[in-house]
Amino acid sequence: MKLLVLGGTHHVGRAVVETALERGDEVTTLNRGLSRDPAPGVRALIADRTDSESVRQALGDAEWDAVIDTWAWAPREVREAARLLAHRTGHYGYVSSRGVHRWPWPSGADESAPLVDGDPGSTDDADYAAAKRGGELAVLESFAGRALLARAGMILGPYEDVGRVPWWLRRLEKGGRVLAPSPADAPLQYLDARDLATWMLSCAERGLSGAFTVTGPPGATTLGELLTTALEVTGFDTELVWAEPDLLRRYGLPLGMEFGLRLPDGGVPSGMHDADVSAALTEGLTTRPLRATLADTWAWLQAEGDPTPRTDAPSPDTWLDAAAEQRLLDQLSH
C-alpha cells in the first residue's frame, strides 16, 4: 500500500511505520520532525498538526491508499486532517481508546457499551475520553463507511512511553526486595503495539471499517505472570514482595494503578481487563507471547535508553515513593 502515518515516531506510530516497512508498504509520515530521524525508506513530511495550513502545504496534492492516525489530543486536528484527505485516501485508521466508553465500564463489555459524548470540532484535550470520542466523530464525518476505529486497551511493547513496563523493568533492575501489588493472580488484558500495527495495516489493506475493541484476549495472563516473566527474561536477582491493596494505600503507594488494577480511591475497577474482543479476533487480530513482548521491550531499553515520558502520562515517580516502600518492606519482614 501507499501509506500515510500521521505521527510515526513514538510507541504505536513507530510500530506502525516499522511494521509497514517490513510488509513492503510505501510509507510517508507527517509530524513535526523533532523527535527522531525518519526510518530509512520513509518519506518524511514536516508539519505541526495544530497548524492546518502547515499540514495542507506538507500534504500537497499527494494521494494514498490508507492513512493511520495516532493523534491523542484535541479532536479538531483530526477533523482537519480527515477533511484534507477525504478525496485522496481510501481508508482512515484511527487509533482510538476503550476510554471512549462511558464509565464505569461494564464487565465483559464489547463495542456496544455506552459511549461518552464528544465534539469533533473541540480544541480541548483535557478530557481524554471526550477527546478520543471527538476524534472518532471527526473521522466519521469525512470517512463514513471507510474508517476503522481501533478502540485500544492497554498497549505495551517496545517504544512504550506511558510508564508501565519500562518503569517496572527499571525498578526490577535495581534488585533486592521490591513491592508488588496483590493479588498476583489479577488478570491483565493488554496488546503489543506491534500486534495492533499489524492488524490495523491488514484492515486497511482489506478496507475493513467499523469500531472494534482491540486488546488481547481476556484471561491470557496475570500481573504475577507479567512480573515473574520479566524477571526471567532479564535475569534480575529481585524478590517480589506482594502487598495487599489496603496496605499499599495506607502507606501512600498507588502501585497497581499503572496497570489499571486500582482506582485512586483504592477501589477495584470493573471491566478493565475482561473486554470482549471477539469481533477483532474474528477479523484476524493475533497476539504474540508475553515473553516476546517483555524481552523485546527490555532489549529496546538497553539499546536506546529510557524514552521521554508523554506529557499526558503520569510521572515515573508517581507509582513509588522509595522511603514509603522501604517502611512497608520493613514491616512485612517482621
Score class of each variant (00 low, 15 high):
M1V: 11
V5R: 06
L6Y: 05
G8E: 04
V12N: 03
A15S: 15
V16S: 04
R23G: 06
E26D: 13
S35Q: 12
S35F: 11
R36W: 06
P40Q: 04
R43G: 01
R43W: 01
A44M: 00
I46M: 02
D48H: 10
R56T: 14
A62N: 12
P75T: 10
A81N: 10
A82Y: 01
L84S: 07
G90M: 03
Y94Q: 10
V100M: 10
W103F: 12
P104W: 13
W105P: 06
D117N: 10
D119V: 04
A126G: 13
Y128M: 14
A130D: 06
R133M: 15
V139M: 05
L140T: 03
L140V: 07
S142Q: 13
A144M: 00
G153H: 01
E160G: 03
D161V: 08
V165C: 03
P181V: 13
S182N: 08
Q189W: 04
L201T: 11
V214Q: 02
G216D: 00
P217R: 07
A220M: 06
T221S: 15
T222F: 11
L223F: 15
L231M: 00
E232M: 00
G235D: 06
L253C: 13
L253W: 05
P254G: 10
L255R: 08
M257G: 02
E258A: 11
F259Q: 10
G260S: 04
G260T: 06
L281I: 06
L285W: 01
T286D: 04
L290M: 08
T293H: 06
W300N: 08
Q302H: 11
G305K: 04
G305E: 07
T308Q: 10
A313L: 04
T318V: 03
T318G: 00
A324T: 07
R327N: 10
L329S: 02
D330R: 12
S333D: 14
S333W: 02
